[in-house]
């Protein structure tokens, strides 16, 4: 399972990458929209974790419609809609849970295959 993490804060990017790697995922990072687009073009990404208002995001977005995307946001009220939101500050357990839920949605409950 390959996860693209696209956040502008380098420390946050490194933290998420290390944490998810330790959790057993294959993680690639991007710190802006252009780099995220490059990663998506070069590698087969299964799901993405992207910061809301990521800088240098190409017009029209970079994520395919069918790709599950978790949006990291500073807003509190993010319920509703199909997009999975994770509000800052989130705990490692919340991140883990969000990723697991997305994988379950993708695989129909068969987990990380």
């Amino acid at each position: 399972m390959k996860i693209l993490t696209a956040v502008s804060d380098r420390d946050l990017l490194a933290g998420i990458e290390k944490y998810l790697t330790l959790a057993g995922y294959d993680v690639v990072g991007a710190f802006d929209g252009v780099q995220a687009a490059t990663r998506l073009a070069e590698e087969k990404i299964d799901l993405s974790i992207v910061e809301e208002d990521l800088p240098r995001m190409p017009r029209g977005g970079v994520f395919p419609d069918e790709m599950p995307v978790a949006v990291l946001t500073k807003n509190k009220n993010t319920s509703g809609g199909e997009t999975k939101y994770l509000s800052f500050p989130f705990s490692p357990a919340e991140l883990s849970s969000a990723v697991s839920m997305m994988i379950n949605d993708m695989t129909g409950g068969r987990g990380n295959e």
Binding site: L12, Y19, P89
Partner: peptide, 21 residues
């Protein structure tokens, strides 16, 4: 509120990484 959010997330994630490694 906003400026505290990301640093706290980073500290939490890094602490978890330290605990795991």
């Amino acid at each position: 509120e906003n400026e505290f959010k990301i640093p706290l997330t980073v500290i939490g994630l890094n602490t978890e990484v330290i605990e795991k490694t």
